[in-house]
């Protein structure tokens, strides 16, 4: 098992998964992408992830459920929420449930990269890359 920090990306938009996987692999993460919340939760049950980047609106099992499960499963996990629906209530709810950050689509790569870096340093386990 590699010592690279493990990053999970959940978004029903496959393009988001593809682009972020390439980006964060370059950053030195071990990246896995999912387009469905349920599949992501199943994977979380099996493996440990350090950081989860999840979309909020995704059909039946949405980002909020992924956040809840991830935090319940592993309190140390850093969950970053990205969403096209930038509602204050949702952001507040996500923070309340332990989200590390709340990013609104469309976002800048640098912005996300910065947040992920901060999450990573918060883990005190800098990525190797």
């Amino acid at each position: 098992m590699s010592d690279k920090p493990r990053l999970m990306i959940v978004d029903d938009e496959p393009i988001v998964g593809k682009r972020l996987k390439r980006l964060f692999e370059k950053e030195g993460f071990a990246v896995e992408t999912f387009t469905r919340g349920s599949a992501a939760i199943d994977e979380l049950k099996k493996k440990h992830f350090d950081i989860v980047i999840t979309d909020l609106m995704m059909g039946v099992v949405d980002g909020m459920k992924v956040l809840e499960f991830a935090k319940a499963n592993c309190p140390d996990i850093r969950v970053i929420i990205i969403t096209g629906f930038g509602k204050k209530e949702t952001a507040a709810e996500a923070c309340h449930k332990g989200a590390f950050a709340f990013i609104i689509k469309p976002f800048k790569i640098d912005e996300l990269r910065e947040i992920v870096r901060r999450a990573c340093s918060a883990l005190r386990k800098p990525p190797t890359g």
Binding site: E13, I15, V16, R19, L20, R22, L23, M57, G84, F85, I104, K105, P106, F107, K108, I109
Partner: peptide, 16 residues
Amino acid sequence: HELNNPLNNISLTAET
């Protein structure tokens, strides 16, 4: 909000 998805995809791809 729906529009944010393709926009995000475009900007993400373009930035990449």
